[in-house]
Write a protein that binds this DNA or RNA. Structure first.
Lengths: 235, 235
DNA sequence: CGCTTCAATATGTATAGACATATTTGCGAA
DNA sequence: TTCGCAAATATGTCTATACATATTGAAGCG
Protein backbone atom coordinates (compact mmCIF):
# COMPACT_ATOMS: atom_id res chain seq x y z
CA UNK A 1 0.00 0.00 0.00
CA UNK A 2 1.48 3.31 -1.06
CA UNK A 3 0.19 6.84 -0.75
CA UNK A 4 -0.26 8.97 2.34
CA UNK A 5 0.52 7.42 5.68
CA UNK A 6 -2.92 8.09 7.15
CA UNK A 7 -4.47 6.16 4.27
CA UNK A 8 -2.14 3.25 4.85
CA UNK A 9 -3.02 3.13 8.54
CA UNK A 10 -6.69 3.31 7.67
CA UNK A 11 -6.37 0.53 5.11
CA UNK A 12 -4.44 -1.71 7.52
CA UNK A 13 -7.09 -1.41 10.19
CA UNK A 14 -9.94 -1.75 7.74
CA UNK A 15 -8.41 -4.98 6.41
CA UNK A 16 -8.26 -6.44 9.90
CA UNK A 17 -11.91 -5.60 10.48
CA UNK A 18 -13.18 -6.85 7.12
CA UNK A 19 -11.23 -10.09 7.40
CA UNK A 20 -12.88 -10.77 10.73
CA UNK A 21 -9.54 -10.77 12.55
CA UNK A 22 -11.00 -8.03 14.71
CA UNK A 23 -14.62 -8.97 15.39
CA UNK A 24 -17.30 -6.41 16.26
CA UNK A 25 -16.68 -5.16 19.79
CA UNK A 26 -12.93 -5.77 19.59
CA UNK A 27 -10.90 -2.98 21.06
CA UNK A 28 -8.59 -1.34 18.56
CA UNK A 29 -5.20 0.08 19.58
CA UNK A 30 -5.22 3.52 21.14
CA UNK A 31 -3.88 6.46 19.19
CA UNK A 32 -0.78 6.39 21.37
CA UNK A 33 -0.13 2.75 20.46
CA UNK A 34 -0.63 3.43 16.77
CA UNK A 35 1.75 6.40 16.94
CA UNK A 36 4.31 4.03 18.35
CA UNK A 37 3.57 1.29 15.81
CA UNK A 38 3.82 3.54 12.77
CA UNK A 39 6.34 5.97 14.18
CA UNK A 40 4.24 8.99 13.33
CA UNK A 41 2.43 11.81 15.10
CA UNK A 42 -0.91 11.59 16.78
CA UNK A 43 -2.67 13.84 14.24
CA UNK A 44 -1.86 11.32 11.54
CA UNK A 45 -3.34 8.30 13.30
CA UNK A 46 -6.24 10.50 14.37
CA UNK A 47 -7.01 11.28 10.75
CA UNK A 48 -7.07 7.56 9.95
CA UNK A 49 -9.36 6.77 12.89
CA UNK A 50 -11.75 9.63 12.07
CA UNK A 51 -12.06 8.24 8.54
CA UNK A 52 -12.88 4.79 9.93
CA UNK A 53 -15.54 6.31 12.16
CA UNK A 54 -17.08 8.04 9.18
CA UNK A 55 -17.02 4.80 7.25
CA UNK A 56 -18.97 3.24 10.13
CA UNK A 57 -16.31 0.64 10.91
CA UNK A 58 -15.21 2.06 14.26
CA UNK A 59 -16.95 3.65 17.21
CA UNK A 60 -14.96 5.66 19.70
CA UNK A 61 -15.66 6.49 23.33
CA UNK A 62 -13.58 8.89 25.31
CA UNK A 63 -11.52 7.30 28.00
CA UNK A 64 -12.76 3.84 26.93
CA UNK A 65 -11.07 3.61 23.54
CA UNK A 66 -11.87 2.69 19.93
CA UNK A 67 -13.92 -0.40 19.11
CA UNK A 68 -14.91 -2.27 15.98
CA UNK A 69 -18.51 -1.25 15.28
CA UNK A 70 -21.41 -3.65 15.18
CA UNK A 71 -22.25 -3.84 11.48
CA UNK A 72 -25.42 -2.05 10.47
CA UNK A 73 -27.95 -3.60 8.23
CA UNK A 74 -27.09 -2.83 4.66
CA UNK A 75 -27.62 0.79 3.77
CA UNK A 76 -26.51 0.60 0.18
CA UNK A 77 -26.06 3.52 -2.11
CA UNK A 78 -28.70 3.34 -4.75
CA UNK A 79 -27.94 4.72 -8.13
CA UNK A 80 -30.93 6.52 -9.58
CA UNK A 81 -29.39 8.25 -12.57
CA UNK A 82 -31.53 10.63 -14.50
CA UNK A 83 -33.23 8.72 -17.23
CA UNK A 84 -31.61 10.50 -20.14
CA UNK A 85 -28.06 9.81 -18.92
CA UNK A 86 -28.99 6.24 -18.19
CA UNK A 87 -30.20 5.61 -21.70
CA UNK A 88 -27.37 7.45 -23.39
CA UNK A 89 -24.86 5.52 -21.28
CA UNK A 90 -26.33 2.31 -22.69
CA UNK A 91 -25.66 3.53 -26.19
CA UNK A 92 -29.33 3.78 -27.10
CA UNK A 93 -31.03 6.77 -28.67
CA UNK A 94 -33.01 8.95 -26.30
CA UNK A 95 -36.09 11.06 -26.79
CA UNK A 96 -38.64 12.78 -24.61
CA UNK A 97 -42.23 13.25 -25.71
CA UNK A 98 -44.39 15.71 -23.82
CA UNK A 99 -47.95 14.47 -23.45
CA UNK A 100 -49.47 17.36 -21.57
CA UNK A 101 -48.53 20.59 -19.91
CA UNK A 102 -50.93 22.43 -17.61
CA UNK A 103 -50.57 25.30 -15.16
CA UNK A 104 -53.21 24.97 -12.47
CA UNK A 105 -54.04 25.56 -8.85
CA UNK A 106 -53.51 22.74 -6.38
CA UNK A 107 -56.38 20.41 -5.64
CA UNK A 108 -57.77 21.63 -2.31
CA UNK A 109 -58.64 18.10 -1.32
CA UNK A 110 -55.00 17.05 -1.64
CA UNK A 111 -52.91 18.31 1.31
CA UNK A 112 -49.91 17.02 -0.60
CA UNK A 113 -50.58 19.33 -3.56
CA UNK A 114 -51.44 22.29 -1.38
CA UNK A 115 -48.15 21.91 0.49
CA UNK A 116 -46.20 21.61 -2.75
CA UNK A 117 -47.79 24.72 -4.26
CA UNK A 118 -47.05 26.75 -1.09
CA UNK A 119 -49.65 29.33 -2.06
CA UNK A 120 -48.67 29.52 -5.73
CA UNK A 121 -49.59 27.57 -8.83
CA UNK A 122 -48.49 24.14 -9.99
CA UNK A 123 -47.02 23.13 -13.33
CA UNK A 124 -48.19 19.64 -14.28
CA UNK A 125 -46.10 17.84 -16.90
CA UNK A 126 -46.78 14.37 -18.28
CA UNK A 127 -44.44 12.72 -20.72
CA UNK A 128 -42.78 9.58 -22.01
CA UNK A 129 -39.08 8.76 -22.16
CA UNK A 130 -38.14 6.69 -25.20
CA UNK A 131 -35.07 4.48 -25.45
CA UNK A 132 -34.09 3.16 -28.86
CA UNK A 133 -37.43 4.28 -30.25
CA UNK A 134 -39.45 2.33 -27.68
CA UNK A 135 -41.14 3.70 -24.56
CA UNK A 136 -38.94 3.26 -21.53
CA UNK A 137 -40.58 5.22 -18.75
CA UNK A 138 -43.71 7.18 -18.03
CA UNK A 139 -43.37 10.36 -16.07
CA UNK A 140 -45.99 12.42 -14.29
CA UNK A 141 -44.59 15.50 -12.62
CA UNK A 142 -45.80 18.40 -10.51
CA UNK A 143 -43.59 21.45 -10.07
CA UNK A 144 -44.12 24.30 -7.64
CA UNK A 145 -43.98 27.51 -9.66
CA UNK A 146 -43.51 29.35 -6.39
CA UNK A 147 -40.21 27.53 -5.94
CA UNK A 148 -39.14 27.57 -9.61
CA UNK A 149 -40.93 30.43 -11.44
CA UNK A 150 -38.48 30.31 -14.37
CA UNK A 151 -39.85 26.92 -15.27
CA UNK A 152 -43.10 28.41 -16.58
CA UNK A 153 -41.21 29.73 -19.61
CA UNK A 154 -39.08 26.68 -20.38
CA UNK A 155 -39.79 24.42 -23.35
CA UNK A 156 -40.28 20.74 -22.57
CA UNK A 157 -41.62 19.49 -25.89
CA UNK A 158 -38.50 17.41 -26.40
CA UNK A 159 -36.33 18.15 -23.36
CA UNK A 160 -37.07 16.25 -20.17
CA UNK A 161 -37.99 18.45 -17.20
CA UNK A 162 -35.79 16.35 -14.92
CA UNK A 163 -32.65 17.42 -16.75
CA UNK A 164 -33.76 21.06 -16.71
CA UNK A 165 -34.30 20.95 -12.96
CA UNK A 166 -30.96 19.25 -12.39
CA UNK A 167 -29.28 22.08 -14.27
CA UNK A 168 -31.21 24.99 -12.80
CA UNK A 169 -31.97 23.89 -9.25
CA UNK A 170 -28.78 22.48 -7.84
CA UNK A 171 -28.22 20.80 -4.48
CA UNK A 172 -31.65 19.55 -3.72
CA UNK A 173 -32.66 16.93 -1.19
CA UNK A 174 -34.95 14.13 -2.19
CA UNK A 175 -36.93 11.21 -0.87
CA UNK A 176 -37.78 8.32 -3.18
CA UNK A 177 -40.27 5.56 -2.63
CA UNK A 178 -39.87 2.46 -4.71
CA UNK A 179 -42.75 0.06 -5.19
CA UNK A 180 -44.30 -2.32 -7.70
CA UNK A 181 -47.70 -1.96 -9.36
CA UNK A 182 -49.72 -3.62 -12.08
CA UNK A 183 -49.92 -1.37 -15.13
CA UNK A 184 -53.21 0.54 -15.43
CA UNK A 185 -54.85 0.45 -18.87
CA UNK A 186 -53.62 3.91 -19.90
CA UNK A 187 -50.15 3.29 -18.52
CA UNK A 188 -49.98 -0.02 -20.35
CA UNK A 189 -50.99 1.66 -23.60
CA UNK A 190 -48.35 4.40 -23.31
CA UNK A 191 -45.61 1.92 -22.41
CA UNK A 192 -46.71 -0.59 -25.05
CA UNK A 193 -47.30 -3.27 -22.44
CA UNK A 194 -50.13 -5.62 -21.63
CA UNK A 195 -52.49 -4.37 -18.98
CA UNK A 196 -51.48 -5.68 -15.57
CA UNK A 197 -47.79 -6.09 -16.37
CA UNK A 198 -45.67 -5.52 -13.27
CA UNK A 199 -43.99 -2.12 -13.28
CA UNK A 200 -41.41 -0.53 -11.03
CA UNK A 201 -42.54 2.82 -9.66
CA UNK A 202 -40.21 5.49 -8.34
CA UNK A 203 -42.07 8.22 -6.51
CA UNK A 204 -39.71 11.07 -5.68
CA UNK A 205 -40.23 14.31 -3.82
CA UNK A 206 -37.57 16.97 -3.98
CA UNK A 207 -36.81 19.91 -1.71
CA UNK A 208 -34.42 22.78 -1.74
CA UNK A 209 -33.60 24.55 1.48
CA UNK A 210 -36.70 23.03 3.04
CA UNK A 211 -38.96 24.28 0.27
CA UNK A 212 -40.79 21.63 -1.70
CA UNK A 213 -39.80 21.86 -5.37
CA UNK A 214 -41.26 18.94 -7.30
CA UNK A 215 -42.90 15.59 -7.07
CA UNK A 216 -42.54 13.01 -9.80
CA UNK A 217 -43.86 9.52 -10.35
CA UNK A 218 -41.92 7.46 -12.86
CA UNK A 219 -43.23 4.12 -14.07
CA UNK A 220 -40.82 1.62 -15.64
CA UNK A 221 -41.64 -1.70 -17.26
CA UNK A 222 -40.56 -4.20 -14.59
CA UNK A 223 -38.38 -6.32 -16.78
CA UNK A 224 -36.82 -3.49 -18.75
CA UNK A 225 -35.35 -1.75 -15.78
CA UNK A 226 -33.35 -2.75 -12.73
CA UNK A 227 -32.26 -0.47 -9.97
CA UNK A 228 -28.86 -1.50 -8.71
CA UNK A 229 -27.68 -0.73 -5.23
CA UNK A 230 -24.19 -1.42 -4.07
CA UNK A 231 -22.69 -1.45 -0.65
CA UNK A 232 -19.14 -2.33 0.05
CA UNK A 233 -15.56 -1.22 0.38
CA UNK A 234 -14.37 1.03 -2.42
CA UNK A 235 -15.39 4.16 -0.63
CA UNK B 1 -24.28 27.42 15.21
CA UNK B 2 -22.35 26.12 18.14
CA UNK B 3 -19.91 23.24 18.42
CA UNK B 4 -16.45 22.86 16.98
CA UNK B 5 -15.12 25.62 14.79
CA UNK B 6 -14.40 23.35 11.83
CA UNK B 7 -18.05 22.27 11.85
CA UNK B 8 -19.20 25.86 11.89
CA UNK B 9 -17.02 26.72 8.92
CA UNK B 10 -18.26 23.67 7.10
CA UNK B 11 -21.89 24.53 7.84
CA UNK B 12 -21.43 28.16 6.71
CA UNK B 13 -20.02 27.11 3.37
CA UNK B 14 -22.53 24.33 2.90
CA UNK B 15 -25.37 26.80 3.49
CA UNK B 16 -24.03 29.11 0.79
CA UNK B 17 -23.86 26.23 -1.67
CA UNK B 18 -27.26 24.77 -0.86
CA UNK B 19 -28.94 28.17 -1.03
CA UNK B 20 -27.56 28.67 -4.51
CA UNK B 21 -25.59 31.76 -3.46
CA UNK B 22 -22.53 29.92 -4.72
CA UNK B 23 -23.52 28.13 -7.92
CA UNK B 24 -21.72 25.04 -9.23
CA UNK B 25 -18.34 26.11 -10.56
CA UNK B 26 -18.07 29.08 -8.21
CA UNK B 27 -14.67 29.46 -6.69
CA UNK B 28 -14.68 29.19 -2.90
CA UNK B 29 -12.25 31.17 -0.76
CA UNK B 30 -8.76 29.76 -0.39
CA UNK B 31 -7.69 28.26 2.90
CA UNK B 32 -5.61 31.36 3.55
CA UNK B 33 -8.65 33.59 3.10
CA UNK B 34 -10.76 31.41 5.40
CA UNK B 35 -8.00 31.43 8.03
CA UNK B 36 -8.17 35.20 7.90
CA UNK B 37 -11.98 35.31 7.94
CA UNK B 38 -12.36 32.99 10.92
CA UNK B 39 -9.15 33.91 12.67
CA UNK B 40 -8.04 30.32 12.98
CA UNK B 41 -5.27 28.05 11.81
CA UNK B 42 -5.02 26.42 8.43
CA UNK B 43 -5.51 22.88 9.75
CA UNK B 44 -8.94 23.90 11.01
CA UNK B 45 -10.22 25.30 7.73
CA UNK B 46 -8.58 22.35 5.98
CA UNK B 47 -10.63 19.96 8.08
CA UNK B 48 -13.80 21.78 7.08
CA UNK B 49 -12.90 21.73 3.39
CA UNK B 50 -11.96 18.04 3.45
CA UNK B 51 -15.37 17.27 4.93
CA UNK B 52 -17.06 19.23 2.15
CA UNK B 53 -15.06 17.31 -0.44
CA UNK B 54 -16.19 14.03 1.12
CA UNK B 55 -19.77 15.25 1.11
CA UNK B 56 -19.35 15.87 -2.62
CA UNK B 57 -20.08 19.58 -2.38
CA UNK B 58 -16.59 20.82 -3.22
CA UNK B 59 -13.86 19.78 -5.63
CA UNK B 60 -10.32 21.00 -5.08
CA UNK B 61 -7.45 21.39 -7.49
CA UNK B 62 -3.95 22.26 -6.45
CA UNK B 63 -2.83 25.69 -7.44
CA UNK B 64 -6.27 26.39 -8.94
CA UNK B 65 -8.37 26.45 -5.77
CA UNK B 66 -11.61 25.02 -4.38
CA UNK B 67 -14.79 25.04 -6.41
CA UNK B 68 -18.43 24.22 -5.83
CA UNK B 69 -18.98 20.79 -7.37
CA UNK B 70 -21.40 20.06 -10.15
CA UNK B 71 -24.20 18.19 -8.43
CA UNK B 72 -24.34 14.48 -9.13
CA UNK B 73 -27.50 12.73 -10.00
CA UNK B 74 -29.19 11.49 -6.89
CA UNK B 75 -27.33 8.69 -5.20
CA UNK B 76 -29.63 8.23 -2.24
CA UNK B 77 -29.00 5.94 0.65
CA UNK B 78 -31.48 3.16 0.47
CA UNK B 79 -32.66 1.56 3.63
CA UNK B 80 -32.94 -2.19 3.24
CA UNK B 81 -33.38 -3.28 6.83
CA UNK B 82 -33.42 -6.94 7.53
CA UNK B 83 -36.97 -8.11 7.34
CA UNK B 84 -37.32 -9.19 10.96
CA UNK B 85 -36.20 -5.80 12.33
CA UNK B 86 -38.46 -4.05 9.87
CA UNK B 87 -41.54 -5.92 11.01
CA UNK B 88 -40.74 -5.71 14.69
CA UNK B 89 -40.15 -1.96 14.33
CA UNK B 90 -43.69 -1.63 12.97
CA UNK B 91 -45.03 -3.29 16.08
CA UNK B 92 -46.26 -6.38 14.27
CA UNK B 93 -45.56 -9.95 15.24
CA UNK B 94 -42.86 -11.69 13.26
CA UNK B 95 -42.36 -15.31 12.30
CA UNK B 96 -40.21 -17.23 9.86
CA UNK B 97 -41.39 -20.48 8.31
CA UNK B 98 -38.85 -22.71 6.63
CA UNK B 99 -40.25 -24.35 3.51
CA UNK B 100 -37.27 -26.38 2.43
CA UNK B 101 -33.66 -26.96 3.27
CA UNK B 102 -31.35 -28.84 0.92
CA UNK B 103 -27.60 -29.31 0.73
CA UNK B 104 -26.59 -29.92 -2.85
CA UNK B 105 -23.93 -29.41 -5.47
CA UNK B 106 -24.14 -26.40 -7.76
CA UNK B 107 -25.94 -26.75 -11.06
CA UNK B 108 -23.14 -27.15 -13.61
CA UNK B 109 -25.16 -25.28 -16.19
CA UNK B 110 -25.34 -22.21 -13.96
CA UNK B 111 -22.01 -20.33 -13.91
CA UNK B 112 -23.53 -18.21 -11.18
CA UNK B 113 -24.04 -21.21 -8.88
CA UNK B 114 -20.66 -22.69 -9.70
CA UNK B 115 -18.98 -19.42 -8.79
CA UNK B 116 -20.94 -19.15 -5.54
CA UNK B 117 -20.09 -22.69 -4.49
CA UNK B 118 -16.36 -22.13 -5.19
CA UNK B 119 -15.73 -25.86 -5.32
CA UNK B 120 -17.85 -26.70 -2.27
CA UNK B 121 -21.52 -27.45 -1.70
CA UNK B 122 -24.49 -25.13 -1.57
CA UNK B 123 -27.13 -24.79 1.13
CA UNK B 124 -30.49 -23.93 -0.40
CA UNK B 125 -33.07 -22.41 1.96
CA UNK B 126 -36.61 -21.40 1.03
CA UNK B 127 -38.91 -19.74 3.50
CA UNK B 128 -41.65 -17.24 4.21
CA UNK B 129 -41.52 -14.20 6.49
CA UNK B 130 -44.84 -13.53 8.23
CA UNK B 131 -45.89 -10.18 9.61
CA UNK B 132 -48.89 -10.05 11.89
CA UNK B 133 -49.77 -13.61 10.93
CA UNK B 134 -49.87 -12.86 7.21
CA UNK B 135 -47.16 -13.64 4.63
CA UNK B 136 -44.96 -10.61 4.05
CA UNK B 137 -42.06 -11.84 1.95
CA UNK B 138 -40.89 -14.91 0.15
CA UNK B 139 -37.23 -15.77 0.38
CA UNK B 140 -35.14 -18.14 -1.70
CA UNK B 141 -31.53 -18.29 -0.62
CA UNK B 142 -28.32 -20.04 -1.64
CA UNK B 143 -25.39 -20.10 0.75
CA UNK B 144 -21.84 -21.18 -0.04
CA UNK B 145 -20.88 -23.78 2.57
CA UNK B 146 -17.29 -23.24 1.54
CA UNK B 147 -17.56 -19.65 2.76
CA UNK B 148 -19.74 -20.38 5.81
CA UNK B 149 -19.32 -24.04 6.85
CA UNK B 150 -20.85 -23.40 10.32
CA UNK B 151 -24.17 -22.73 8.65
CA UNK B 152 -24.68 -26.41 7.86
CA UNK B 153 -25.38 -27.06 11.55
CA UNK B 154 -27.59 -24.06 12.29
CA UNK B 155 -31.34 -24.40 12.81
CA UNK B 156 -33.56 -22.28 10.57
CA UNK B 157 -36.95 -23.79 11.27
CA UNK B 158 -38.09 -20.58 12.89
CA UNK B 159 -35.07 -18.26 12.73
CA UNK B 160 -34.43 -16.43 9.47
CA UNK B 161 -31.07 -17.22 7.83
CA UNK B 162 -30.54 -13.51 7.08
CA UNK B 163 -30.33 -12.66 10.77
CA UNK B 164 -27.96 -15.56 11.39
CA UNK B 165 -25.65 -14.41 8.62
CA UNK B 166 -25.73 -10.83 9.87
CA UNK B 167 -24.63 -12.04 13.26
CA UNK B 168 -21.99 -14.53 12.16
CA UNK B 169 -20.54 -13.01 9.00
CA UNK B 170 -19.85 -9.38 9.72
CA UNK B 171 -18.68 -6.68 7.33
CA UNK B 172 -19.86 -8.06 4.08
CA UNK B 173 -20.27 -6.22 0.81
CA UNK B 174 -23.43 -6.57 -1.20
CA UNK B 175 -25.06 -5.74 -4.49
CA UNK B 176 -28.82 -5.55 -4.72
CA UNK B 177 -30.97 -5.48 -7.83
CA UNK B 178 -34.48 -4.19 -7.46
CA UNK B 179 -37.12 -4.99 -10.01
CA UNK B 180 -40.82 -5.68 -10.42
CA UNK B 181 -42.41 -8.96 -11.53
CA UNK B 182 -45.86 -10.47 -11.82
CA UNK B 183 -46.34 -13.13 -9.17
CA UNK B 184 -45.89 -16.68 -10.45
CA UNK B 185 -48.62 -19.15 -9.45
CA UNK B 186 -46.58 -20.73 -6.64
CA UNK B 187 -45.36 -17.36 -5.38
CA UNK B 188 -48.90 -16.02 -5.40
CA UNK B 189 -50.10 -19.00 -3.38
CA UNK B 190 -47.40 -18.63 -0.75
CA UNK B 191 -47.97 -14.89 -0.43
CA UNK B 192 -51.76 -15.24 -0.47
CA UNK B 193 -52.05 -13.04 -3.55
CA UNK B 194 -53.78 -13.34 -6.88
CA UNK B 195 -51.63 -14.72 -9.64
CA UNK B 196 -50.04 -11.88 -11.62
CA UNK B 197 -50.07 -9.34 -8.78
CA UNK B 198 -47.12 -6.96 -9.10
CA UNK B 199 -44.36 -7.78 -6.63
CA UNK B 200 -41.16 -6.01 -5.69
CA UNK B 201 -38.12 -8.23 -6.01
CA UNK B 202 -34.83 -7.64 -4.23
CA UNK B 203 -32.07 -9.84 -5.58
CA UNK B 204 -28.98 -9.52 -3.41
CA UNK B 205 -25.54 -11.05 -3.68
CA UNK B 206 -23.17 -10.81 -0.76
CA UNK B 207 -19.39 -11.11 -0.56
CA UNK B 208 -16.85 -11.12 2.18
CA UNK B 209 -13.27 -10.29 1.37
CA UNK B 210 -13.96 -10.98 -2.29
CA UNK B 211 -15.43 -14.42 -1.56
CA UNK B 212 -19.04 -14.92 -2.60
CA UNK B 213 -21.12 -15.81 0.49
CA UNK B 214 -24.78 -15.89 -0.40
CA UNK B 215 -27.38 -14.97 -2.94
CA UNK B 216 -30.96 -14.27 -1.97
CA UNK B 217 -34.10 -13.38 -3.84
CA UNK B 218 -36.83 -11.78 -1.78
CA UNK B 219 -40.30 -11.22 -3.19
CA UNK B 220 -42.60 -8.65 -1.55
CA UNK B 221 -46.21 -7.92 -2.39
CA UNK B 222 -45.99 -4.65 -4.30
CA UNK B 223 -48.50 -2.74 -2.26
CA UNK B 224 -47.45 -4.08 1.12
CA UNK B 225 -43.90 -2.88 0.90
CA UNK B 226 -42.18 0.34 -0.08
CA UNK B 227 -38.48 0.86 -0.18
CA UNK B 228 -37.64 4.37 0.90
CA UNK B 229 -34.46 6.10 -0.18
CA UNK B 230 -33.40 9.44 1.14
CA UNK B 231 -30.80 11.85 -0.03
CA UNK B 232 -30.18 15.16 1.56
CA UNK B 233 -28.32 17.19 4.13
CA UNK B 234 -28.25 15.74 7.64
CA UNK B 235 -25.01 13.92 7.12
C1' DC C 1 -21.65 -1.78 51.84
C1' DG C 2 -22.96 1.86 48.91
C1' DC C 3 -22.31 6.41 47.52
C1' DT C 4 -19.55 10.35 46.15
C1' DT C 5 -15.45 12.37 44.57
C1' DC C 6 -11.36 12.62 42.12
C1' DA C 7 -7.73 11.47 39.19
C1' DA C 8 -6.23 8.86 35.21
C1' DT C 9 -7.06 7.98 30.48
C1' DA C 10 -8.27 8.23 25.64
C1' DT C 11 -10.37 10.90 22.52
C1' DG C 12 -11.72 15.79 20.53
C1' DT C 13 -10.21 20.11 18.99
C1' DA C 14 -7.01 23.47 17.78
C1' DT C 15 -2.32 25.88 16.80
C1' DA C 16 1.91 27.11 14.20
C1' DG C 17 5.12 25.66 11.32
C1' DA C 18 7.24 22.81 7.62
C1' DC C 19 7.93 20.54 3.34
C1' DA C 20 5.72 18.10 -0.77
C1' DT C 21 3.11 18.29 -4.99
C1' DA C 22 0.34 19.60 -8.75
C1' DT C 23 -0.98 23.24 -11.80
C1' DT C 24 -1.15 27.59 -13.69
C1' DT C 25 1.03 31.63 -15.35
C1' DG C 26 4.35 34.28 -17.31
C1' DC C 27 8.83 35.01 -19.05
C1' DG C 28 12.51 34.11 -22.03
C1' DA C 29 14.67 31.70 -25.80
C1' DA C 30 14.45 29.23 -30.28
C1' DT D 1 4.82 33.06 -32.48
C1' DT D 2 5.49 29.12 -30.03
C1' DC D 3 7.72 26.09 -27.11
C1' DG D 4 9.73 25.14 -22.77
C1' DC D 5 11.18 26.21 -18.25
C1' DA D 6 10.81 28.43 -13.87
C1' DA D 7 8.31 30.84 -10.34
C1' DA D 8 4.17 31.54 -7.90
C1' DT D 9 0.23 29.55 -5.78
C1' DA D 10 -3.05 26.60 -3.45
C1' DT D 11 -3.76 22.32 -1.79
C1' DG D 12 -1.85 17.76 0.51
C1' DT D 13 0.52 15.80 4.20
C1' DC D 14 2.81 15.66 8.48
C1' DT D 15 4.94 17.11 13.11
C1' DA D 16 5.01 18.49 17.91
C1' DT D 17 2.43 20.52 21.23
C1' DA D 18 -1.44 22.12 24.01
C1' DC D 19 -5.64 22.18 26.32
C1' DA D 20 -10.65 20.53 26.55
C1' DT D 21 -13.91 16.88 27.58
C1' DA D 22 -16.14 12.66 28.58
C1' DT D 23 -15.83 8.36 30.94
C1' DT D 24 -14.00 5.00 33.71
C1' DG D 25 -12.10 3.07 37.79
C1' DA D 26 -10.49 3.46 42.21
C1' DA D 27 -9.95 5.77 46.51
C1' DG D 28 -12.25 7.72 50.34
C1' DC D 29 -16.15 8.67 53.27
C1' DG D 30 -20.60 8.15 55.51
Amino acid sequence: MTGPLHQRIRADIEARIRSGEWAPGHRAPTEAELMEAYGCSRMTVNKAMIALVEAGLIVRRKRAGSFVARPKVHAPVLNIPDIQSEIVARGESYAFRLLSRVVRSPDRDSPEEVALAAGGKLLALDGVHDAGGRPFALERRLVSLKAVPEMADADFETHPPGAWLLEHVAWTEAESRISAVNAEPDEARLLALDEGTACLVVDRRTWREGQHVTRVRQVFPGEAYDLVARFGPGT
